[in-house]
Write a protein that binds this DNA or RNA. Structure first.
Lengths: 235, 235
DNA sequence: TTCGAGCATATTGTACACAATATGAGTCTC
DNA sequence: GAGACTCATATTGTGTACAATATGCTCGAA
């Protein structure tokens, strides 16, 4: 029973597993399921009206994408990234999205530009609607859209994974006092693309990512997954 | 039963699944199992002396790492990348490894340099031994080693996936007349790292990747996974 | 001989029952 | 009352039996 969509959010439910996968994945990405929440197999099986085996399969897939964590004999929880992990994800994003920016300028044609502009409209609409879930999703989709424009499905997959993890990270480390209004920044990026300003776009993208990261409070909060054994290894 | 090692080739067998995963993964990466080979669950179960369920989990894990393809109701085969996929993997590698090169120069200290030089020794040894499998592995490990030096586990994971896929791609599209002797090129890269020549390293890395790709015959060979439906869609 | 239908076989897909495990509550002792 | 021990319960882990499916073969008819 392959979760046929893989990590990609397929529009049409190719297999029942893929559908469940998407539902849970979205619930997590849109923060209806918060980091640390337990995901009990029986409960999910009942909710989705399928057998436990199916759920286990889906949980396995989600774990692969690092949005849930499996604890041997103790079940699954929504992943709770550490500060270290958060920093690594952002570093990876800067590296990949920075390099991607150059390619985007090269790859963008009229059709692509249309898609980009259409996307901004969606972002504005979701910000107006005050639907936080959709707001987050469209904002994240902008970043994967760039990979799509470059036309490299390997990179699309990577970006998709990074964005899902970013969603979790934001959920944990977001400072309540700041709200990121991204459509404006994204519009500026599109402008640079339209002007074929390669270096400008790269810089702006890196700036954008740094800004997002700076809006987080990336220091250890509560009893994060600290590994006791490691801490007392030298005693 | 999480395949605890994930896609990382763990040294110590944390769980029986992880061990099986590693064995199959290595068999594929080292080309003892060639693209297209069928992987029948019962057979594998018998070989490894475990139940079929265990094998299914492992196959699922391998599928998500794109080294195995699952066909609904028809079982698993070793993945057989298409030309398109091959080109995308190499494009992704250029993008990521190119950008990584800059970071490597920054991140390399004495300890890292030692690791790099030790690795070269390994490469030379395996080339001498004429053990094609080990030769391939050490050569590929060099590239993930760079990510390790930068110290970003997210990138290490990406690189590992890309290298596994590259192994498959090479297996399919390699031209029999050319043998890549990589340790020499890799040594030159290390030299550039030692000299802190950022731009030089980036260029050399891109050159290296282009060279590898150019040694492949990236045109459609036999009856690659062509989708009949798509081809005759307009009839 | 060619085509198709139906059957045989090999293989994968799924559910279920039970085993293993972790955790917390309750109990007993000192 | 503090600590350790046992047991109850909730939950996950695993093997097995059986159902579903795909594929190739056989056989019969045109």
């Amino acid at each position: 029973m392959p979760v046929s969509g893989g990590k990609v959010q397929a529009e049409k439910p190719e297999s029942p597993e893929a559908e469940i996968y998407n539902k849970i994945h979205r619930a997590i990405a849109e923060r209806r399921l918060l980091p640390g929440s337990r995901l009990v197999e029986d409960q999910l099986a009942e909710v989705f009206g399928v057998s436990r085996m199916r759920i286990r399969w889906v949980l396995q897939s989600l774990a692969r994408d690092k949005v849930v964590t499996l604890h041997r004999n103790r079940g699954a929880t929504v992943a709770k990234p550490t500060v270290k992990e958060a920093k690594e994800v952002f570093a990876a994003r800067r590296l990949i999205e920075g390099a991607l920016a150059r390619e985007v300028v090269r790859a963008t044609d009229d059709k692509a530009l249309k898609r980009l502009k259409a996307h901004i409209k969606k972002e504005i609409a979701s910000e107006k609607s005050h639907d936080r879930a959709m707001e987050l999703r469209t904002s994240h989709d902008f970043h994967t859209l760039l990979a799509e424009i470059v036309g490299n499905s390997v990179l699309v997959d990577f970006l998709q994974e990074l964005m899902a993890r970013s969603a979790l990270i934001t959920a944990i480390f977001e400072r309540p006092d700041i709200s990121v209004c991204s459509h404006f920044t994204h519009s500026k990026l599109i402008e640079l693309i339209e002007n074929r300003d390669e270096q400008g776009l790269v810089d702006a993208m890196l700036g954008h990512l740094n800004e997002i990261e700076s809006y987080l409070s990336l220091y250890e909060k509560d009893e994060q997954p600290v590994d006791i054994k490691t801490i007392f290894a030298d005693l």
